[in-house]
Amino acid sequence: MKCIRNVLTAAAAITIVVCATAAAFAVTGDDILNRMQDTFSIGGADSGEGILLSIAVLNQYGSGITTDYNLAVAAETIIDPKKPSDADETSHALMYFVGGDDEGMIFLLSTPEAKSEKSRMWLYISSFGLTKELVSDEDQSGNFAGSTLSYADIAGAGDLRDDYSATILREETIVVGSEERAVWVLELTPKPGVDTDYARMLLWVDKEEDMFLRLEGYNASGARTKEIVVASLGTFEDRRIPDVMVGRDLETGDVSTITLSGIRRPAGGLPEGTFDPANLGRFDPSAYGF
């Protein structure tokens, strides 16, 4: 349970990566970073159908303790035609806890494209039948204390472009599962005056899909503290997506494994009002085949 937010952010990240689209060839590290961020969308803005995912998360702590969660996720990017085109999208991710004491709890995350707007989170607690918005001064995508993975770690939701400068260290080929992938290896260093999680990051970015396949975070003394690896790739709608991601906190020894066990489009799309906080209590996962 310690990593519950982590679970959700990781799940959201998978959703993001799943929906990433390829872009034009890049020549500099910052260009590649821009392409990664530009392809950032939840639910597939181009499709308008939304997406359904089944995600299993296994946390193995350095102390030997393990916890696991199963989530049924519905996500969609909704466009508001009244807004300017560069700020008209809002990505929604609804995550339903399956099984255990938390069965029926729902976490809803809405992330607007407009930088002037903040992400919002709601939590529906089924045992009380109540929904509350979780308001915090902190960045909702920030790292959970002691967690193995965070939203920013996996998908760059904290917007790496704002915080880091990137340079291409080299190009190489790495093995993911049973296949070889051509990657750029980027070195990210914090921009002056920016408070970042890492003093240095290395990113292995898939040339074809513009998604990272490996991430390493380093602290100020040069020690590697975090490692996230895409362990295997799947395919969805002609795009390669990560099936299994493994994150390691090298300081605590905690390991999180996120497995995408199912992905599909909802037949006939997601009904209007699915992502309305007032409707969370009425969300029925069985209606979507979960």
């Binding site: 310690k2 937010r5 004491d101 069965e103 709890m105 939590l123 979780l134």
Partner: peptide
């Protein structure tokens, strides 16, 4: 709360808010 499920979900709420259980509970609440 009188129900186990309510306890569990309140603790989940705490975790959502970025709360760290520290020494009060192990990650698996054993």
């Amino acid at each position: 709360p009188s129900e186990r499920k309510q306890v569990s979900q309140l603790l989940a709420l705490f975790s959502f808010q970025g709360g760290d259980f520290g020494t009060v509970a192990l990650p698996d609440f054993s």
